[in-house]
Design a binder for these strands. Structure first.
Length: 762
DNA sequence: CTAGGGTTAG
């Protein structure tokens, strides 16, 4: 995208906030006490004076002096800002005592105070006792319910209001529209749209803005844009809403185009527009435009705006500009919980974009240490924090940290949140603790599509395909509509169980009953299934018949199957197809190399090596991690630098000997890893290559009690030899061993693995 | 009294 058009900066300092509007209505009389109560307009950092003034004003009220209504407003505003419900109650009592409660305007404001503080029962009570009701009081109550996530009550109040014969304003209808959009009810929204026509305010910006946002939330992007186009005087909010609408519906690039259009129409963006635009850059990972918007925010005078700083920091994290992000973070003199959350979530997202698993692991570890700092800072984590942290624990297979977070969510009451609950279910699933996952799932009071999908996938990944399918039927009975991700779980369950007929039935159900277009992952599950069953020809037929061009992953599955079943001809064909795709992944090349090496095809070996050089691919990095208590230990292939290295190798040696009597035979894997690193680690000491997961397991066996499973993550796929060996270790040591490698989860129990022994490509 | 920054499943 081209550069942004430049904006003429004619910015005046931001005017005093909302309370001025109110206080202007209450002209102070001469009898008012002469306390000068100046509310600071600074967003960040509460000055001491301001606190003092607030306390002074409060003590003045406590003394019981009769004051003018105007005196209460700024103090109540402070109660709103800081959610000081008990102070508000004291003021309320004072108002009643001195007879000021006859002032309908003041009491309406009090409804607003209780509503904003999230105490809707009291707000409703004050509202019911109002001497006079007007549109503002009705609207205030509605807004309160919307903010309190009770849109159905907001709609009920709206009905009451209409029955009472009050005329709604643009604000009322706007709020009613927000309620409909929270209810995801396009129908209700349309009815309210009708009212706006009836009251002749349909072209009003606030109506159009709310309509735009409603349609966007209901997934009707086209209607949203239409609503935007119909607005007569588009204001900055209209633009912000439509820009976000594009972004929320997966069209970030067009959203940015609208942002540019807005600038070229000389509408000056505000902080909300800028944060929206920045979040679009986040989605697109566009540092280029992001940095331009960053400078625009400075030009427009928002450099000290906290939400904007948070967004920029998050953007830099997501684009992997970790040092810039850290610099911003360190330079911030005031930070909010959102800042912490953005840091944690940013590191969590960076795990997905990290160049390899080693880097990803470091991001995750960093995220956990940021969470620790947040807890120490005295600030209280919220549902956003917990969801992110739990997802980090899942990725790291850090069960013990996850358990601690679980305890904290119970203590703080955030476990009742669906998203947190789902993240918890997912954490236990990813740590291979299926029993606790299912317990957490059962205990949820509400379940979303994502919760069901997470649990179904969990069963599939943990080697309980039957349970996965049963749960899928429960989900359908509960009236929850599966999406394409749910079907990835269902199909992979069938694949694991080798249930060909069921798999094909579910595939048809997905296409016909749910009208879901298959994506690559669905085909991958089915092809994987045929390969597992040794039905390579059928797998190949399926590849030929599918509507999508097979990708690297599909060919890799086929090659792995061909290799293990000695069908070299088909394997070579698949390899040619794979090479044409010029994969960017070291592991994929490694698979090819191994296939050609074991077949003695030296010409192809050197060709693959050459291609790897051309693609500037590094060597495989074989790292494993194990999390014990609140520490994560890392192990590199053949490493001998650990304090316990001696014991670890001794233990492994013994286990190797014992394993032989169980039919285990050393099987050399021809892998290409970092040769220099191997040389460093005194490879010459032994002819056996110790892959990193063996070391991690040995460390785990030495340092954990017999009762707990051993949980390891690994940066690349396990090789067949390690897989065979670990299967036997699980038998010999009577320990459950859970390994998540770069491809899948392996849960070894009593000599068996949940992947059905088809989880290894090398 | 309408708008914003941070969250979960492959």
């Amino acid at each position: 995208m081209a550069s942004l058009p430049s904006v003429a900066v004619t910015r005046t300092p931001k005017s005093e906030s909302e309370f001025r509007k109110y206080s202007a209505s209450f002209l102070p009389s001469e009898k008012s006490p002469s306390v000068s109560y100046q509310r600071s307009t600074q967003l960040d950092g509460v000055s001491e004076a301001r606190c003092l003034d607030f306390r002074e004003a409060l003590s003045f009220i406590r003394e019981g002096t009769k004051v003018e209504s105007a005196f209460y407003v700024p103090i109540l505003q402070e109660c709103i800002d800081k959610k000081l419900v008990s102070d508000a109650q004291k003021i309320h009592a004072h108002i009643v005592k001195t007879g000021a409660h006859k002032d309908a305007f003041l009491m309406t404001f009090l409804v607003n105070v209780y509503a904003k503080c999230g105490t809707m029962e009291t707000a409703r009570k004050v509202f019911d006792e109002l001497p006079r009701r007007n549109v503002v009081s009705w609207t205030t109550l509605m807004t309160g319910y919307v903010h309190d996530s009770k849109p159905e009550l907001a709609v009920q109040v709206f009905r009451e209001m209409l029955e009472a014969g009050a005329y709604p304003t643009n604000y009322t209808l706007g709020t009613a529209l927000s309620a409909s959009s929270d209810l995801h009810s396009k129908e209700l929204g349309k009815q309210i749209h009708g009212y706006s026509i009836k009251y002749r305010i349909e072209f009003d910006a606030s109506i159009g803005n709310s309509l735009c946002s409603l349609y966007s939330k209901c997934g009707s992007l086209e209607c949203a844009v239409k609503a935007f186009r119909r607005i007569r005087d588009k204001n900055v909010i209209s633009w912000t809403t439509v820009i976000s609408a594009w972004g929320d519906n997966g069209e970030a690039a067009t959203g940015l185009q609208f942002f540019v259009e807005m600038l070229s129409e000389c509408v000056e963006p505000n902080e909300f527009t800028l944060t929206s635009a920045l979040s679009l850059c986040c989605v697109m990972q566009s540092l280029d435009i992001g940095t331009q918007i960053h400078s625009l925010t400075i030009k427009l005078g928002f450099e000290s705006n906290l939400p904007i700083k948070n967004s920029i920091m998050y953007l830099y994290l997501k684009c992997g500009w970790i040092h810039e992000a850290k610099k911003l973070f360190d330079e911030m003199e005031t930070i909010s919980l959102v800042t912490w959350n953005a840091m944690i979530a940013g590191h969590a997202r960076m795990m997905d974009f990290a160049k390899d698993d080693l880097a990803a692991h470091q991001c995750g570890t960093e995220a956990l240490s940021i969470f620790l700092k947040l807890n120490r800072s005295g600030m209280k984590p919220d549902l956003f924090t917990f969801s992110s942290v739990l997802s980090v624990c899942s990725s790291l297979v850090a069960l013990e940290q996850g358990e601690q977070v679980h305890a904290q969510t119970i203590k703080t009451g955030f476990l009742s949140d669906v998203v947190v609950g789902t993240a918890l279910v997912n954490m236990y699933n990813k740590c291979g603790s299926i029993e606790r996952a299912s317990k957490a799932f059962v205990e949820m009071s509400i379940r979303t599509l994502i919760s069901w999908t997470s649990m179904i996938t969990g069963y599939a990944q943990n080697g309980q395909p039957q349970q996965a399918l049963l749960l899928f039927e429960d989900m359908r009975l509960a009236g929850v509509r599966p999406n394409k991700i749910t079907f990835v779980g269902v199909l992979s369950a069938c694949s694991h169980a080798g249930m060909v007929d069921e798999a094909l039935d579910y595939f048809q159900m997905m296409k016909n009953e749910y009208k879901i277009t298959p994506v690559m992952d669905h085909y991958a599950c089915l092809i994987d299934m045929f390969v597992r069953l040794g039905r390579l020809d059928e797998a190949f037929d399926f590849i030929k018949e599918m509507d999508l061009e097979p990708n690297e992953f599909i060919w890799s599955i086929l090659i792995a199957g061909c290799r293990s079943q000695g069908k070299l001809e088909l394997g070579f064909y698949a390899a040619e197809q794979l090479l044409n795709l010029k994969p960017k992944d070291t592991e994929t090349y490694n698979l090819l190399l191994n296939m050609y090496l074991s077949a003695g095809k030296w010409k192809e070996v050197s060709r693959v090596r050459k291609m790897m050089k051309e693609e500037k691919l590094g060597r495989l990095k074989d790292w494993s991690w194990i999390s014990i208590k609140d520490k994560i230990y890392s192990f590199k292939r053949n490493a001998r630098s650990h304090a316990q290295s001696g014991e670890m190798y001794e233990l492994l040696g013994n286990l190797h000997e014992k394993a032989k009597s169980f039919g285990y035979e050393w099987e050399e894997s021809l892998e290409v890893t970092d040769e220099e690193e191997d040389a460093d680690e005194e490879k010459a000491l032994t002819s056996i290559v110790y892959h990193s997961e063996k070391l991690a397991i040995a460390f785990g066996l030495l340092n954990t009690s017999n009762a707990v499973p051993i949980r390891v993550t690994k940066s690349i796929s396990m090789c067949r030899d390690c897989h065979n060996f670990i299967r036997i270790i699980s038998l010999l040591s009577a320990r459950e061993i859970i390994i998540r490698d770069s491809k899948r989860l392996h849960k070894f129990i009593n000599g068996h693995c949940s992947c059905g022994d088809f989880g290894t490509l090398i």
